[in-house]
Amino acid sequence: MIVFDLCCQSADHRFEAWFRSSADFERQKRDGLLMCPQCGSADVEKAVMAPAVGRKGNRDSGAPSVHTPQGEGAAPVPSTASAAGAERGAAAGLPEAVKTALVQLADLQKRVIEKSRWVGRSFAEEARAIHYGEKDAEPIYGEASPEESRALADEGVEVAPLLFPVAPPDKLN
């Protein structure tokens, strides 16, 4: 996973988001899946980022000073304004209530995903089968193109986008 500082070009809002790779960022941008969490604008670009360089005093640990999410069950579900980002000051422009709400939303999404089945690119097909009673109802999550999502909505299939990008289970570290 890689974290990028992003900037809303419409209103100069700054936030961070986690991606599987640079290519994943580019794909999500191309597919219109990136939005500013403050104003909803899809005009989002990578912001200039400073490298994470540890202080000279960190040499004895033998490890670079790079922040990664910690704790039991550390979420593979990225947050656009995680506590880690707040610690580094990446989300310094956001009010505390917004930061807290985003962290809580990311945690909620993580818990929902833990109780759901990953169906990958067959999400639209699986959602239709459940909607039309061809398969037993169960919580699922996966990938769908914007066109597939619109088609599901037009058919009355109840789906909701995940608020934060998710790496497929087979791609997690």
Rank of each mutant, 00 (worst) to 15 (best):
A144M: 02
G133F: 04
A101V: 06
L102V: 03
E148P: 11
D31T: 01
A97C: 01
L162P: 00
A101H: 15
S22W: 13
H67G: 02
P95G: 04
S61R: 07
A11K: 13
H67T: 03
R59Q: 08
C36I: 01
C7D: 00
E147G: 03
S61A: 09
I140E: 10
E143P: 00
V3D: 14
F25P: 01
S22H: 15
F25E: 04
L152E: 13
M35H: 13
P146Y: 05
W18M: 08
E148V: 08
E125I: 09
I140H: 06
E143L: 07
A153W: 03
T100R: 11
I140Y: 03
A86W: 06
G142T: 06
Y141E: 10
Q70D: 07
S65Y: 05
L162H: 01
G73N: 06
W18H: 08
A84E: 10
E158Y: 12
S82V: 04
A84C: 03
G89E: 05
R30N: 13
R55D: 13
Y141M: 07
A127V: 00
S65D: 12
D43R: 14
G40T: 00
A74I: 02
D12P: 01
A144S: 02
A160S: 12
D154P: 01
V48S: 08
V77C: 08
S145P: 04
A160R: 15
Q38E: 07
D43S: 13
P169F: 03
L172T: 07
R14F: 13
K110E: 15
L152F: 03
E16S: 14
S116N: 12
S10E: 09
D60N: 12
A90I: 09
P169G: 01
P146V: 10
V119Q: 05
Q38V: 05
Y141D: 10
D154N: 10
M49E: 15
A160N: 11
S145D: 08
F19R: 04
A144F: 00
V166Q: 14
G54L: 03
R27H: 14
L33P: 06
L108D: 12
A52L: 13
S116D: 06
E16C: 15
R111N: 14
P168N: 03
V66D: 04
P51Q: 02
T68I: 09
K171V: 08
G85E: 11
A23L: 10
S41T: 03
Q9M: 14
G142S: 07
L6S: 13
G62R: 04
P168K: 02
V53T: 09
G71R: 02
A17Q: 08
S149A: 15
F164P: 01
F15S: 07
A92H: 02
E16F: 09
V53E: 07
N58C: 08
V159R: 04
Q104C: 11
S122A: 13
R55I: 05
A160D: 11
P165Y: 15
S65K: 10
H13I: 02
S65F: 06
A47R: 00
R128H: 05
A74F: 11
A84V: 10
D136N: 14
T80I: 04
K135V: 08
A153K: 10
A124H: 10
G71D: 02
L33W: 12
E87M: 14
G133Q: 11
H131R: 10
T100I: 11
G93W: 08
S145K: 07
A129C: 08
E72F: 09
F123V: 09
A151Y: 02
